[in-house]
Design a protein around this nucleic acid. Structure first.
Lengths: 263, 263
DNA sequence: CGATTTTCGACACGCAGTGCCATACTGGTG
DNA sequence: CACCAGTATGGCACTGCGTGTCGAAAATCG
């Protein structure tokens, strides 16, 4: 109606897409996810049912399409930054996700509440997180499916995602607050600081690193005459914490637990 | 036909259920999950389509119904053992799951391969794991949604499930091997030994425990003048390792990392 | 045996998702 | 302007999942 004069029907495919998402979000919130049909969304968006399916593929995808293309962006970003430092690239990927969420609160906030309410959507969200974790792990250790590198990659990916999700959820619950970029920065910086070196060289940097490194329990194969397994893997430790815990607090505590000074 | 004379049509509701699951498994494996319709399964099982939906609710549930009732069993077991030690109860719950899997390989093994092949089913499996983890966490710290107890519970649940899934998958890939009960025992024993004390008293048992306890980084609020967060939570460390790594190897390595002797 | 309750099967229906084809609209060419 | 690809759209029909309903048959009880 007021957008690009691409299509005579309603003003551009992009605009129609956004209208559909907005309409779906509104209808889902007002009448419930199950009670809203694709015909309802199509009518509200001013497009045909068939076009809706062409664009989004499924009813769930009306909600997660943007998230999916975000994942595709992240994946492309990771693939494109193969020359960069993998740890930095993964943290940047997490930042991309965070950026996308906070940039469109009118979409992400109601979707967050919908996902919390509808089991089907919650499962989808869980699967999504698993996909991110797999992508991060793969980018960190694409050539090592076993061994200490894969182990550190797994831990690092889990930590990055856990930290990101925690900060993100705290904002989603209270989107009126200022976007907690600082907390995300601290979370990413912490992960990079603590698990990054372990990932880059599982065999020793922490041993030769700062004071208290030996207290981490993160030791290398050369530092210990441990009976090496068939793959020579080493254990890597990562913090697990409840979703409601304050992010900065988590970071400080884990940092202390790893032997860093409290300040 | 040879079971209970309950129903004149085909020999008992239980038998019909099992026939349906078996038929679904066979058809899914032979012709694919998407290509097999509920009518096909109904015909193969000798029941009507409507009855099939009455028993299983959905197509996916034909595969996961037993898994769901297993989860219900586990949940009831946890609820019933409120008086027992929570850590022991959770480990016993993991054993129940393992027991159910190995007791019915003709179901669990083909289902495992189906789940690996069909994205839709894989997402469901991931969600299932998340449900178990939530149930374990809730049972370990039902009355503490925050604080060190919840933290330790989260870590403990994650560790138990990770260890269980690892041992289980190794058997699912090679069901001809002897059931690795010993590896599961070791996994559960290790988790109990290492994270159990931390859960039972996050404030210090490991500090006063064996040698090298301080190296764990698992310290209590009383042991450190750390600026406590609003909830007074403490960090707890848990091992994360790739699925293909040998279970015993993981256990030994993490045990070493936590300061226990290698033997 | 008859009466009640439960289970099963058959039919109809709504809705998600897909294939097919006709109809616009796009940009480029003579 | 007429013509012609290529593409996005809409309408239509169809398969399949999942559900509500109702009558019939079987199980249970007296």
């Amino acid at each position: 109606m007021e957008e690009t004069p691409r299509s005579g029907r309603g003003g551009g495919a992009r605009a129609a897409r956004r209208r559909a998402v907005a309409a779906a979000l509104r209808l889902f919130t007002e009448h419930g996810y199950e009670a809203t049909t694709m015909d309802d969304i199509a009518a509200a968006a001013g497009v045909s049912r068939r076009t809706l399916f062409r664009h989004f593929g499924s009813k769930e995808d009306v909600l997660f399409a943007e998230h999916d293309e975000l994942f595709a962006n992240v994946a492309r970003h990771l693939a494109a930054s193969a020359h960069d430092d993998p740890v930095t690239a993964v943290c940047a990927a997490a930042r991309m996700v965070f950026q996308d969420y906070v940039a469109a609160p009118e979409i992400t906030v109601p979707r967050y509440h919908l996902v919390r309410a509808v089991p089907r959507l919650r499962d989808r969200e869980i699967a999504m997180t698993a996909r991110y974790q797999a992508a991060f792990t793969g980018h960190l250790a694409a050539d090592h499916t076993e061994g200490p590198r894969a182990l550190a990659a797994e831990a690092l990916a889990a930590a990055v995602i856990a930290a990101h999700n925690h900060v993100l959820r705290s904002w989603l619950r209270d989107p009126e607050h200022r976007v907690p970029w600082n907390r995300l920065d601290e979370a990413m910086a912490f992960v990079t600081r603590t698990l990054g070196p372990v990932f880059r060289d599982p065999g020793g940097p922490l041993e030769a690193g700062g004071p208290g490194a030996a207290r981490n329990g993160l030791t290398g194969p050369a530092a210990r005459p441990a009976p090496a397994g068939p793959d020579g893997s080493e254990a890597v430790l990562v913090a697990v914490y409840p979703a409601r815990m304050d992010g900065q607090d988590v970071l400080r505590r884990v940092s202390e637990a790893l032997g860093h000074p409290a300040g």
